[in-house]
Design a protein around this nucleic acid. Structure first.
Lengths: 216, 216
DNA sequence: TAGATTGTTAATCGATTAACAATC
DNA sequence: TAGATTGTTAATCGATTAACAATC
């Protein structure tokens, strides 16, 4: 029997990459050790929260000293499964899809695009950022063959559900959805929504609240 | 004295645009009325939660009937300040910046790009998706002149803080930050982070937890 | 030894969910 | 009138923060 993986709270998962960022800057400055308080200060968080988050990765620190930067980087990346590069597909090579394919950093974040798909005849057969574009009809078969388990969706809204079915048919288990449309999936599939409007709604409302409170 | 705007919980703000999406599909189907239960079912949420969220907008429904679709759309958009289109700047016309400028839907989400900025001489003076690209040195002055209060940052990480200062100098109050770097701002500025790695971390970890639990 | 930081338990806070009364 | 849905209060749950003991 394998050890059970404890579910990490989502807010913690969203913060862990921010810690990573800071840790990389420390590494550049050749700092070997970091304390939870220094992380908390830089990111404007509570130090207990940082410690709780870090604890999720299983690392242990040294009282009075802190954590070893290299080890903490390794542990966070391991926790997020970013140490093993996962192959991924992307469907929809419009401007957003193209931008994502061109974003070198994703290799840092544990995913590696191995193929792109599109419905547009003119795009099929071409390369985008060095990645071949295939027709969506090939997706399921290729996903099985290449054992790809992560799919990114950046198609127009009315094509998103159809693409989702194809992905599931091909054995894809994790879907990163940029389309402003709720996907219907069986419960063994993980969907993470990354629509722009989520954070934009927070921005526009919080801004309004702030400006309003000043004019009271 | 003006009525105080009650702070809306962030999770609520992230859900409201999802409700909007569903409401638009109802409108297309010519449905006039919607219940909180039907919204909850479509989005996989609890109906009390939906009612609580909706309540934030100040709308009142009719027992046994529900809410008027058109009115609910209006109220949600008003709550998010999406009925008045806010002018915005974007700094960094790389592939992500270009994708954002080309995304027609932002007009639906209450923001309207009026100018773009970049450090690259070759881009300055050109147009991207019909929007002029200016040097960053012009940003502050133009922001004041045009009374722009929202800025989007899509520059390389090491330029982000400098751009932030320019924005603040120009009177920008709300910053939508796509750069994987923590911005330092005075407390009268609203920063909303929209880094890819936040939701990607959730995806890769949750996927790992799910697959792991199946192999136990 | 004294002091700083981790690790952990307890308290607080906020968001979600359950229960139910009001109303059409 | 009966039943369905809103509106609201109470209970639960989970995440954040505070307090403090353990440890180097």
């Amino acid at each position: 029997m394998t050890k059970l993986l404890k579910a990490t709270p989502k807010p913690t998962l969203r913060r862990l990459p921010q810690y990573l960022d800071f840790l990389y800057t420390l590494k550049i400055q050749d700092k070997k050790i970091v304390t939870s308080k220094s992380i908390a200060d830089v990111l404007g968080l509570d130090q207990t929260q940082v410690r709780k988050d870090i604890e999720q990765t299983g690392i242990t620190g040294k009282p009075k000293t802190g954590f070893v930067v290299d080890e903490l980087i390794f542990r966070i990346r391991e926790h997020l499964n970013w140490n093993n590069l996962s192959d991924a597909f992307i469907v929809g090579v419009g401007s957003l899809g193209t931008a994502i394919l061109g974003y070198e950093r994703f290799k840092h974040y544990g995913i590696n695009f191995v193929a792109a798909f599109d419905a547009d005849e003119n795009k099929i057969g071409k390369k985008v950022s060095g990645i071949n574009v295939y027709p969506v009809s090939k997706l399921a078969q290729m996903a099985k063959q290449l054992e790809v388990h992560i799919g990114v969706i950046t198609v127009p809204a009315d094509a998103a559900q159809e693409v989702t079915y194809e992905m599931i048919k091909g054995g894809i288990r994790g879907i990163w959805n940029f389309v402003p449309k709720q996907l219907i999936v069986p419960e063994n599939i993980v969907v993470e929504n990354a629509q722009f409007y989520q954070s934009l709604a927070v921005l526009t409302r919080k801004l309004r609240e702030k400006i309003h409170s000043e004019n009271k």
